[in-house]
């Protein structure tokens, strides 16, 4: 691995909502994200994508395993406190639900500039307002939004405000948890183009979590497929789409809709393969950089 920005090592996380209930949201996930790449993470609802993102942002403390960010172990409280400011500035999260990630009582200007205020960074463009306006422009909003509250914005405008807030510190790693799921198609394309543009211009690294496979195909350099808390396949995006090996990935890819109703109608309905057996499997490198989860018995 030449230049890994983030490394997940045997990461597991279990929720314990009740005394005798355990939900294993992540099971032994290991992979790394290279510096400057856009890493796509796809998988069905409830497979643990958000949990992974939240572990990476230190919102959840994983039950076992390690996450290394630039060699700093994020699960180790002491190391984390030592690099607190660096971590707070360099990692930013874009939430899945834009309505609840913005304080309904704050105006857009203050929402967007909140990271600057918290980190006590002098705004590079003179005033906080100018800075907010610049960031809004870069996500396709104009200054008329500055004085509005989130309630007065549409869903896609809210999501763009939260993207602007994540971008204002010019972070190194942006964890985007389904940032475009609530946007209409033209805006989706814009936001995705924006991400690509930002990545080319500034070399940001993205962890891009999505449902929409066509966007992942367009945007991401490498893609991981998750199912039931496990990473089942990991490959460069082009390779994954042209040569899916895991049955679940194959089913997922076959479910991408065609823009042709006749072909669409003739297609068999989506049927996910039976879930993985509970036994532990291991990611096996089938061809260079192409990993597939295989249970020990299959090999």
């Amino acid at each position: 691995m030449p230049d890994a920005l983030v490394e997940f090592q045997h990461l597991s996380h279990a929720f314990r909502p009740g005394r005798h209930i355990v939900i294993k949201a992540l099971r032994d996930v290991s992979f790394s994200i290279q510096k400057g790449e856009i890493f796509g993470l796809v998988g069905e609802s409830g497979c643990g994508k958000s949990t992974l993102a939240r572990c990476l942002m230190n919102i959840y403390q994983p039950s076992s395993g390690r996450i290394l960010y630039k060699g700093v172990d994020l699960c180790d409280g002491k190391a984390r406190r030592q690099h607190r400011r660096m971590l707070q500035r360099e990692r930013q999260l874009i939430f899945q639900d834009s309505a609840s990630s913005l304080n309904p009582r704050m105006r857009v200007e203050r929402i967007v500039t909140e990271p600057l205020v918290i980190q006590r960074i002098a705004p590079p463009r003179g005033s906080l307002r100018a800075e907010a306006e610049h960031q809004l422009r870069s996500v396709g909003l104009d200054a008329s939004c500055l004085n509005k509250t989130p309630v007065e914005l549409s869903g896609s405008q809210r999501q763009r405000v939260s993207i602007a807030r994540a971008l204002i510190l010019e972070p190194e790693l942006i964890v985007a948890d389904e940032p475009i799921a609530s946007l209409d198609v033209s805006i989706q394309a814009q936001i995705v183009t924006l991400f690509k543009h930002l990545q080319l211009a500034h070399g940001f690294t993205f962890l891009f979590i999505a449902h929409d496979l066509s966007m992942v195909r367009y945007l991401c350099d490498r893609t991981g497929v998750m199912r039931g808390g496990r990473l089942v396949e990991l490959a460069p995006t082009r390779e994954l789409f042209s040569n899916p090996l895991h049955p679940y990935t194959q089913a997922l890819l076959s479910a991408i809709p065609f823009p042709d109703p006749l072909r669409e109608r003739a297609r068999p309905a989506f049927s996910a393969p039976p879930p993985e057996p509970a036994r532990e499997g291991a990611l096996v490198e089938v061809t260079p950089d192409h990993f597939v989860l295989q249970s020990p018995s299959c090999t």
Binding site: M57, N58, I59, R84, R85, Q88, R89, R91, Q92, L93, F95, D97, S100, S101, L102, N103, E114, P115, I118, Q119, R165, L169
Partner: peptide, 10 residues
């Protein structure tokens, strides 16, 4: 989420 976000930002 906005409180969680503020905590992430430090």
């Amino acid at each position: 989420d906005y409180v969680v976000a503020a905590r992430c930002m430090g």
